[in-house]
Every structure is written in structure tokens, then in C-alpha cells.
Deep mutational scan, measured.
Amino acid sequence: MIVFVRFNSSHGFPVEVDSDTSIFQLKEVVAKRQGVPADQLRVIFAGKELRNDWTVQNCDLDQQSIVHIVQRPWRKGQEMNATGGDDPRNAAGGCEREPQSLTRVDLSSSVLPGDSVGLAVILHTDSRKDSPPAGSPAGRSIYNSFYVYCKGPCQRVQPGKLRVQCSTCRQATLTLTQGPSCWDDVLIPNRMSGECQSPHCPGTSAEFFFKCGAHPTSDKETSVALHLIATNSRNITCITCTDVRSPVLVFQCNSRHVICLDCFHLYCVTRLNDRQFVHDPQLGYSLPCVAGCPNSLIKELHHFRILGEEQYNRYQQYGAEECVLQMGGVLCPRPGCGAGLLPEPDQRKVTCEGGNGLGCGFAFCRECKEAYHEGECSAVFEASGTTTQAYRVDERAAEQARWEAASKETIKKTTKPCPRCHVPVEKNGGCMHMKCPQPQCRLEWCWNCGCEWNRVCMGDHWFDV
């Protein structure tokens, strides 16, 4: 396979590697080409510095992935760790964990309700045991953590790749202090920090972006993250068709209702045909949960890209028209025109101005929308079919299609509260000796007794199943 190397943020060049090629071997190839010592090179990928003893497969490097290699003399205490030698983080029983690669970060837990604080980093599902597709590297999971809308060759929703760059020099040479644990960490600028490894760059702020994971991409090709779309790892039924499908869209209502993408497309087109989208002054033209839940309008309007190009163009047109109407304007009634106009409040005669090729020149009556006339309008008909009709959803289907309910059931079956801080902690095999993952707590306690870890627990039921 081919990976592209950008040395000291210059133009990239291809390097041929195998899945079992080590990072140090990659350094040696680059060092020979650039005429520099291999031990002064640092390989940066997806916000993480890659260790010498890791392989291309370990690092989730795919065909035509772009890695950054910078030349920086080692500072005291760094060289041993980078070589894969006596790194205290690798000691058996050590409590410190390697910062998780962005290629394996899962933010789907952050669609849980606000009262489930902490689960994004504490609760991990076991539903990723799908067998890898044919042709994928051994052991590589097909679980997708992110979804994007690819405006490039795909023109559809695709699995996405999370990447990070330095907000100062805009190069992907920043190593994160810690990985993101929720969508806010990724979507809110300057929320996460790190250290830029580019020479002479003092940058410390992280800037995240997404790429389409279905095809090789260049540095400049980015895609918009659709953070309401998630892999259906909890096997929730769709609120409309009641099938279990994946991926799904999880509405931001209190129940976190789930809808499959085909039904979401149908829901949007139906509402669009009836012009029953909601115009929100802050958000724009949007839709609420299909069950009509309060405070559930979709905030990231790129989710409506699921409509496809033709329907999305209609959505944008109707949204612009609705904006004009909300501002007190009118639409030209001549067939084939429909231009938005903003006449004076007491102006009865409205002319669709033909300047700049935008208007048709038609003069019409503001009251009856017919060709302009003197005197009273002959008839004014009330528009028919403008009443909002509820999208029919079966109550039982709505009850079963809740992301929140599956989460709470998982928590109930696989977790116990920490005796000190009461945060839910998952036990997935292993011994009875637990350690609270909350940095402010870190209590060592017994899963069996529910009390602080002691010699009695150690001698009596340390390794009970």
C-alpha cells in the first residue's frame, strides 16, 4: 500500500509500505531520502505521535493516508518512550493509558441525555464484534464512529474520518494533550489543546475536521460531520418502519427517538411537499423529531443533505422563500418566477423588478396576487391545505425507538455506581478489583462488596467470576 509523507509540512511524497511495516522502518526510509538522522524524526498522525514499535496496521493507516513527519531533536526523557523501550505506560498493571487514536474515538455516547454525564468515556458498548469485510486488514473493525456528507465523488452519507490540525499553522502536526470525549470537544473551536510539532510553531489549540472515509482524499478535501447519525450498535428499532437498520439518525429530543435514513428521507420529502418545515429565527429551515417532541429541531442543517441534490435544492429554495415571508415580504405569483420581494408595508401595487435578471417585471396586487387592478379585489380565496398535519407515529413504536432507553438498560445490566462519587462504572470481565475512572475520584473498590478495596476482598473473592 501507499502512504503519503509530508516532511516538515512540505509537499508530500509517496512511500510504499506493508501492513506489518513498523513506524521506525518508515522513519528509516524517510531519513534516507531526506539525509537526516532517523532518531530525530517524529511521525504524527490523527493528533498522535506514533511509536517506533507500532506497525502501519496498528495505527489504522489506510491506503493513501497522509502522515506528517517532522525533524525535531529529542528532548530529555522522550527518546526512550518513542523507541518502544522502557515506557512506564506499558508496564503490566499500570494505570496510565495511551491517548486514544482519533481513528478509534467514539462519540456516540454523547447523544445520551444530559443526566448521563461521564458515560462518553466510561461506558463502552460490546456491539462492535462484526466481522471485518472481505479485503480489510485482519482485526480491523467495521464499526463506524462518525458519518459525514461527502460532496465529492460519493454525493451521499458516508463513514467519516476525524482529523485534527494546529489552529495556528493549519498543519496536521499537532499532538493532542488528551483525546475528545464528546461532540462539544470536536465542534467547539479551541476547546481542546495540544502541542504543535512543526518547527518554530508555538500553536497549542486544536482544530478538528472530518474527511470522507470511503475514498482517498487530499489535504484540502473536508466534509461536514453529521453528528446525529450513528451506527445502530444498540439495535434500536426505527420509529417509523420498526426495522432494525444501521446507520440511524438520533433526534435530540428527551427520548432520543431513532429513525433509519430511508424513513428520514421520506419524512423530509413529505414535509417538504406540504411546505411544513419549521422556520426558526436562529436555526433556519428545519424539522423536529418525527414524533413531534418539543425542543427537538435539527440544529445542523447539513443533515438535510440526505435528501439528495434535487430535493436539497428545493429545500434551500423553500427556506429562502419562507425567510422572505417571515420578513413581511411577498413572492411573485407569476408561474416560473417566484422571486422574493420586500415592498413597503402599505404598498398595494407590487412590481417584480426586472433588474439584474432576477425579476420578471410582472405587476400584481398584494392582496389577491392577481395582475394589478384598481378598486376592490374580486375574490380572495383562503389558501387550502395549509394546516399542519401531524406525522403519524405509532405510540408503541415510539416507545421502542428510544436510544436513551437502550442506554439505561445497558447501564443497569453492566454497571454499578462507584461507592464514593456514584458514577456508573462498567465491568466487562476481569477481577473484582475496580478503579473509578473519574479523575477527581480514582477510588479503588470491590465490585462484589461495593466497598473500598481491602485485604478481605483480596483474599476471599479477588478473582471470582
Rank of each mutant, 00 (worst) to 15 (best):
A214N: 08
K32E: 11
E426P: 11
R89V: 13
C201F: 01
G35C: 08
A172W: 05
P281V: 07
D106E: 10
P132I: 10
V465Q: 15
R163P: 02
I2E: 15
V425S: 14
K211R: 09
H68A: 03
Y312W: 14
T237K: 15
T55Q: 06
Q197N: 12
Y149A: 03
S10R: 04
A363T: 15
A46H: 14
L331F: 04
H302N: 15
G179A: 12
R75K: 13
G336C: 07
A214D: 06
N428Y: 13
L297N: 06
R51M: 14
L226F: 04
Q347K: 13
E353H: 08
S110A: 12
K416R: 07
N273S: 04
Y315A: 04
T240F: 08
V164L: 10
F4Q: 12
K427F: 14
L283E: 08
S233P: 06
P437A: 07
T351N: 08
C323N: 15
T222D: 10
I259L: 07
R455P: 15
Q34H: 14
V56M: 13
K412Y: 11
I411T: 11
E49F: 00
E376Y: 07
L287G: 01
G47C: 03
D60Q: 15
D243A: 13
K349H: 07
P113H: 09
G459H: 15
A320T: 12
H124V: 05
P333Y: 02
N90W: 09
K427A: 10
L249N: 01
C323S: 15
E444L: 04
N232W: 00
N254M: 10
P288K: 06
R163C: 15
Q78Y: 14
R334F: 06
S9P: 00
Q100A: 12
K32R: 13
K299S: 11
R51A: 11
E221Y: 08
K435M: 06
S145G: 05
N81Q: 13
P424Q: 10
F463E: 00
S296N: 02
Q282M: 10
G430N: 15
C377K: 02
T240E: 06
T103F: 07
A134D: 10
R163G: 15
Q171A: 10
A31H: 02
F264Y: 04
S145K: 06
C323D: 15
Q63Y: 09
E221K: 07
Q440N: 15
R51V: 05
G340N: 05
R442V: 05
C365Y: 02
I229D: 00
A320W: 08
W453F: 04
E444N: 15
Q440W: 08
G114N: 12
M434R: 04
E322Q: 07
G359H: 14
C457R: 00
P247D: 02
K412D: 11
D243G: 10
E376D: 14
G359K: 12
F7N: 03
S109C: 06
A214W: 05
K32Y: 13
T173A: 11
I229T: 03
G284C: 02
G12P: 08
S181F: 04
A38R: 05
K151C: 11
G308I: 03
C253R: 00
Q25A: 08
F7W: 05
T204A: 08
V29Y: 14
T386D: 12
G94Y: 14
